[in-house]
Amino acid sequence: MKGIDAILQGHPGAGRDALIPILQEVQEDQGYISPQAIAEIGRRLKLPASKIYGVATFYNMFRFSPRGKFHIMVCRGTACHVKGSAKTLETLIKALHIEPGQTTRDGLFSLEVVACLGACALSPTITVNGTFYPKVTQAKIAKVLDECRRAAQEKQPKEMAS
């Protein structure tokens, strides 16, 4: 991670017009826009925190909690919509108890809605950490989530050992 400081140093003399590029870089670097990042960007650009938060929440791409170990993107593009992606999203919201843009308390899953994943032939589709899952159904989603949980559990002892 580069850190917020280093990112801001890459924008010497930046004004409010640099806000969105900076937010993008911070998100790329940290995975999300933290309260600390908002405070720091505000101090450097001489912008109120409310303004930065307002701009950042205007765009869907910015998130305000760290990504989960498994980042799930749900396609809500036209083809997926026709094939029932509203149901897909609802299933995930119910299963994970989070809204799009949020992360589960255990830090395992985060959810994001995207306009189109470019895989209309596989609709309705989701991705988990970039891997495509085609033609998902309620049952398939449950299976995928279980797999993720199992993978996390298996990994845990190893992580502790290292």
Partner: peptide
């Protein structure tokens, strides 16, 4: 923002979800 120079509140989110709120 413009009269008091405080800017405690701003528009948050967008479209039909938009509302006025504080930072975070």
């Amino acid at each position: 923002e413009e009269i008091q120079g405080v800017a405690a509140i701003d528009f948050i989110e967008r479209g039909s979800r938009a509302f006025i709120g504080t930072a975070l």
